[in-house]
Design a protein around this nucleic acid. Structure first.
Lengths: 401, 401
DNA sequence: TGGAATAGTGAATCTCATC
DNA sequence: GGATGAGATTCACTATTCC
């Protein structure tokens, strides 16, 4: 079943039979008290909706009525996910406790992401909350396993453990004192903090609808709480992300939205089914990091900001010279000092600076006298220490002769 | 001021003058309805406390009274951080809204960590929430800057941009078509999701107290919301992490706890922060909780192992000389080089070494020629750069005359 | 006075030139 | 031509300026 309904969510929910839905995902207005508006990239359609309410009670009253209907249509094994942000999350969870009861609270999922924004006085917001409740204790759940953390001790994965007399966890041993191997391990169960990249402004998946969520987020929710063929419902479907995710995972779905534009957009997306894989998730954050730990410490020790993705520059100082940035280049292990200097000079960005710094890290290659006023060469502290130690060793050697 | 008070938090708070505290951190029982108990590694002390309540209302009534007192003692520029977990966070935030008002809500901080799995049905719980409210709009806040994301390229942070006629953002150019460089950049402001490792069960820092929080977490809170000399209060101080963090950052503090054991433990931890030189080596890799970040980076950049602050030594090189350790001393901000050298020479531990290293970090005091063969003085990279920049500035000045 | 325009942001993508 | 990498681009941001 694929159903997209234009209409008021409260009224439309009333038309749905009881106990037939496996998963409800709700992404209602967050009570931001703002008008949200965004235009498609071709400037042809301006999507907007008003998240402005007379009072908090108005908002909560609407949400309460909606949640009551949701509970009714949910199967006994069904789950509900309510997406909110800091604006009203606490009030919404109080509602959820009222309607679904505290014992059916399953998780507070944190969707965390990095975002572009100007600095403000205070901390940069970079997460939203998704409350996960089930209708009963007997809820459907598929455990997803993720990779072990790199710091995990392999011994702990392979060996069975038990609690000793003091309640401490120790490796279990048989009568002969041999360790006992554990059963098959699948990885670490998925945690309740989900680092999923925010839908990037440049992503093809973006359709120009404000508050659009990444398909990946919805796929994860659908994966843990439903099986193929199950019925998914989104009562505020907006740009239709839930429907797209459900379709891609072969689930049945019902999408409801009050806006004509939203319904049209959802239909269009279902026909095109454009889902961009996050390159960042695919390749992993670490694949973008080109600097070694040593280089990072060195940069930090001179109060420089590290930059990746640039051949000539490793970072730049926090202070400026002539109101221009001061780029820094660290001599690489097998690089001559000349090459290091050439490298920073070739960098398109560094060319615009009046002063550049090269940090020398080894002495394998002698440097001919430097003419360029715009380049400062500094020996790294480690190199200086190495040189001094050599001097002292020489003295010790000479004396003992 | 350093004050550790044994007593009921409500009563003790009442004895504190109004509007004198800069930062309150509260880590109350979370309403888990459980008894928490943990034993020290040597099995000698069993710490425990009861987080069992007659009803949610009982719990909230206690917290409400506590928060009202907190508001009273907080300065007009003061901040409060309330640490909670999923058990009652929503109710606590409703309380905070009531007492501190919604407009003084600053952030919902997510402390996320990796944890051992006890595979249950559902998502692995791996975060806690810290609510950040201020007393007024005019609150104290120090922005901390973090590194740019590895996916960020230099070009855009380096170049000034403007909106063109179509409202698109493009690089700004001068009359000659050259790009214009941007202002000074400090990095990315700290976000509200903090990934700080949960106390590793084997960590030295761990003292055997249940619900113990990492010092790093508290240091971050103290850093963003107070300056040196400010007054920090923790009304449920437990194992005393807040006090340790406050002391390490040179803040005054008051810690309150009802448990005799907790008070004793806090005192013990505070006392151990002053560690005798003789204990230094046997401890080996001691925790470096009191080192400033700058010193840490400097030590790391020369491949040295940081040691806890003592009068003479900041760290040891990983390599040895004459089969003896090489201690390192970093010249402090307001310290003459002579004093730095005297300091390391006076250190009991350093006396056993054949070679010592002093890293000079400023030029305020001239150094007379050094006779001592056993001391190597190295200028820090930052100082070297500073000197070079001064030279260049002089040249620019002379030329223009 | 207070909403609207605007100017400054940086994450992560897309694009396009280069190998 | 596929892979690579540098550069440009866009926005559920935020603070300031502008009427």
């Amino acid at each position: 079943m694929e159903k997209i309904i234009k209409g008021n969510c409260l009224e439309e929910l009333k038309n749905i039979d009881s106990e037939i839905v496996d998963l409800i995902y709700l992404d209602p207005p967050f009570f931001t008290q703002k008008k949200h508006s965004l235009t498609t990239r071709d400037n042809r359609i301006n999507y907007q909706f008003y998240d402005i309410w007379h009072s908090l009670n108005d908002y909560l009253f609407m949400m309460k009525k909606c949640l009551i209907e949701c509970k009714r249509i949910l199967k006994k094994t069904g789950n509900i996910f309510l997406h909110c942000d800091k604006s009203a999350s606490h009030h919404l969870r109080v509602l959820l406790d009222q309607i679904f009861l505290p014992e059916n609270f399953r998780s507070e999922i944190i969707w965390s992401y990095k975002r572009w924004s100007n600095s403000k006085k205070g901390l940069l917001n970079s997460h939203q909350t998704i409350y996960f409740y089930s209708k009963t204790y007997d809820f459907k759940f598929n455990t997803i396993y993720t990779d072990y953390s790199p710091t995990t001790n392999v011994d702990q994965i392979w060996q069975l453990r038990e609690k000793n007399d003091y309640g401490k966890s120790v490796y279990k041993k048989d009568k002969n004192g041999n360790i006992i191997l554990a059963q098959e391990k699948k990885g670490v169960p998925l945690s309740d903090v989900w680092e999923i990249p925010f839908l990037n402004p440049k992503a093809k998946e973006r359709v120009g609808y404000p508050t659009q969520k990444p398909v990946l987020l919805l796929q994860q929710i659908i994966n843990i709480s439903t099986d193929e063929g199950d019925l998914v419902l989104d009562a505020f479907c907006g740009s239709g992300t839930t429907c797209v995710a459900a379709k891609s995972l072969h689930r049945n779905f019902i999408g409801i939205d009050i806006s004509e534009d939203a319904i049209a957009l959802t239909q269009k997306r279902l026909n095109e089914m454009i889902i961009t894989n996050s390159k960042l998730l695919e390749k992993g954050k670490t694949s973008y990091i080109e600097k070694s730990e040593d280089e990072l410490f060195l940069l930090k020790s001179i109060n420089a900001i590290p930059v990746q993705r640039n051949n000539g520059i490793d970072g730049f100082l926090k202070r400026q010279f002539n109101e221009k940035p001061i780029p820094v280049r660290i001599q690489k292990k097998d690089e001559t000092l000349e090459n290091a200097i050439a490298s920073i000079n070739n960098s398109e960005q560094a060319k615009k600076s009046d002063l550049k710094i090269v940090i020398q890290t080894n002495n394998y290659h002698q440097l001919f006298p430097l003419e360029d006023e715009k380049i400062i060469v500094i020996k790294s502290s480690e190199l200086l220490i190495k040189e001094e130690l050599q001097k002292v060793n020489m003295m010790v050697y000479n004396k003992s002769n």
